[in-house]
């Protein structure tokens, strides 16, 4: 059981959250991409070993999306960032 820090509610148990996968930057203009580039965005994940920036939703709590840095080997969690901010950082 992971203890995940929701940036709005604080430390909560993993069961309150749902996983949103890798925190990927959405292309600003999908239509300017080739099919290959668009497919890269849709279907391909880095499958990182180590620190992983990923999205979670506090679905059984405040319902906010946010991102965390989680180590995929040790499950250590470094920080959590509200979704808007994490997306801005990505850009």
């Amino acid at each position: 059981m992971l203890i995940i820090k929701c940036p709005y509610c604080g430390d909560r148990e993993e069961t309150e959250f749902s996983y949103g996968g890798e925190n990927k930057k959405r292309p600003a203009d999908p239509y300017s991409l080739s099919d290959k580039e668009w497919a890269e965005y849709l279907f391909f994940k880095k499958n990182t070993v180590g620190w992983h920036n990923e999205l979670w939703n506090h679905s059984h709590g405040c319902r906010r999306w946010f991102s965390i840095e989680r180590h995929t080997v040790t499950n250590e969690i470094k920080q959590s960032t509200p979704s808007q901010l994490s997306m801005e950082e990505n850009i």
Binding site: S18, L55, R63, R64, W65, S83, Q84
Partner: peptide
């Protein structure tokens, strides 16, 4: 559906 809609509102169109 609710999670999906919240996702777009909170991440891409805050």
């Amino acid at each position: 559906v609710l999670d999906w809609m919240e996702y777009w509102l909170q991440t891409e169109y805050p």
